[in-house]
Nucleic acid binder design. Structure first.
Lengths: 110, 110
DNA sequence: TGCTTAATTAAGGAACTGGTTAATTGCATA
DNA sequence: TATGCAATTAACCAGTTCCTTAATTAAGCA
């Protein structure tokens, strides 16, 4: 997951992924909206590829990029697990505070 | 979100967060399981703090760290949105392939 | 006051990131 | 075959990351 999170930490790469979520595209198509050199985009795509977030297929001189869902599924599971754990804790804490307040009220007028 | 994803890209920091999901802890308590110098942990915690994933409260010479849910909620929303988009595309593609196969079959024996 | 403990700051180094320009590869086509 | 286009590789640079050890801050206690 290290590489996946690191890949997602860059806004250019997140934009590339968002574009790819709308369908396959060639390197040129992906690069067009950015004011950045072709090699820079090429390197970003390499990072996404090493994180297994995209695959590259060659036809003639064009490379077509496609998204791969698995790594996103994996980070999703980690994050949702964390949120579950954390929310459980928060709920328990809230419960605890409620109990304390109830005890306080009962102490005031028994 | 840049800082949040970057913070999550390091396994030591993910472990620190996982520990904190079980409840608040001091720097010392968090550092104990790691074979790493105290300053190293301190710096990891600073990264988590800058990503607003944790808050630090001081009591005497102890710092108590607590998780903050918001940034995790934000990355969760981004990831789930991406997964939705991507799955929609996948389903549409599958549908398309099915239609093509159906057409083929109808062409074979009309 | 001096000592101990918890933690941070300071300084430094090796490796990695994110960009650049220039050169190269691979394919298609006049 | 020469030319052009899509894309990558190579080489380089500035800035960042992740770790270290040494020094410093701040609080509690004999």
């Amino acid at each position: 997951m290290n590489r996946v999170f690191a890949a997602l930490a860059d806004p250019t790469r997140r934009a590339l992924l968002a574009k790819l979520a709308q369908g396959q595209a060639t390197v040129g198509e992906l690069a067009a909206p950015f004011s950045m050199s072709a090699p820079a985009i090429s390197q970003h795509l390499k990072v996404l590829e090493r994180a297994e977030l995209v695959t590259r297929t060659t036809q003639a001189q064009w490379r077509t990029l496609s998204l791969r869902a698995e790594p996103l599924d994996e980070v999703s599971r980690w994050i949702e697990q964390q949120r579950r754990d954390w929310n459980l804790r928060l709920d328990a804490l809230e419960q605890h505070v409620d109990n304390m307040q109830k005890l306080d009220r009962e102490k005031e007028k028994p």
